[in-house]
């Protein structure tokens, strides 16, 4: 029963909260969309925490997306064992990098008096949830090798079953507990997304690469 809720129903709830919540927040409180950077108050630990974390998570997320959308590609790539080892080794290294980054960020949040002043409860909740996600990911990579080989046969079909509204929870429930935690926690992360500083992901300023270098706004020609 709990399995059905966690892996069959909760994902949909999380998705609705994610989308509805983000739209609501953007529409009513756009002012609160910010990176909420605290580099101004403390920079040294931030560098060692933030840079590894952000670059690591970008690569890891892209890896997960590739596994979900082109599983056959991953399988084909892994056919040569050496490639599999390199892929898994890189993923594990990145996972460890993420862990170090997160731990540093947590230490920084709890030790620097200046940073504590701008730390909300949600910031801590988020960091702990992310750490749980990273640790369960690392654990999976270490204890249940080789993830990139079985991910396309379990996680991918499970997610596709979710996408087609016929959730097949047995894909997840047959996996080890660590993997179940990883999966459930990922939906938790989606559900809390709109209420945390993670919303800054929605404003990745890619358009900076091509926008004009000066912006002049006429009130009279307000269309712009």
């Amino acid at each position: 029963m709990i399995d059905l809720f966690l892996f069959g129903i909760f994902p949909y709830i999380a998705l609705v909260i994610l989308i509805g919540g983000s739209i609501w927040r953007y529409a009513t409180k756009q002012f609160t969309f910010s990176s909420l950077s605290s580099q101004f108050l403390e920079g040294r630990l931030l560098f060692w925490g933030s840079v590894p974390w952000h670059y690591g998570i970008i690569v890891i997320l892209i890896g997960h997306l590739i596994g979900i959308f082109i599983p056959s590609g991953v399988m084909a790539f892994n056919r040569i064992p050496l490639r599999l080892y390199i892929l898994e080794g890189t993923a594990l290294a990145l996972g460890l990098l993420l862990m170090v980054g997160l731990v540093l960020l947590l230490v920084r949040r709890s030790t620097s008096p200046r940073i504590r002043r701008v730390t909300s409860t949600m910031d801590i909740v988020l960091l702990v949830a992310l750490l749980l996600q990273v640790l369960s990911g690392i654990g999976t990579a270490v204890f249940y090798r080789w993830g990139s080989a079985w991910f396309p046969q379990t996680a991918t079909p499970y997610l596709w079953s979710l996408a087609t509204f016929s959730p097949k929870v047995e894909y997840v429930t047959s996996l080890p507990l660590l993997m179940q935690v990883h999966t459930a926690n990922s939906f938790v992360l989606l559900a809390i997304f709109p209420f945390t500083r993670m919303v800054h992901m929605l404003s990745i300023p890619i358009s900076y690469l091509w926008r004009p270098s000066q912006i002049v706004v006429w009130y009279r020609r307000q269309a712009r």
Partner: peptide
């Protein structure tokens, strides 16, 4: 990066 700053033409 966010194009938040602008110059008022008037």
């Amino acid at each position: 990066p966010s194009a938040a700053i602008y110059k008022r033409a008037e």
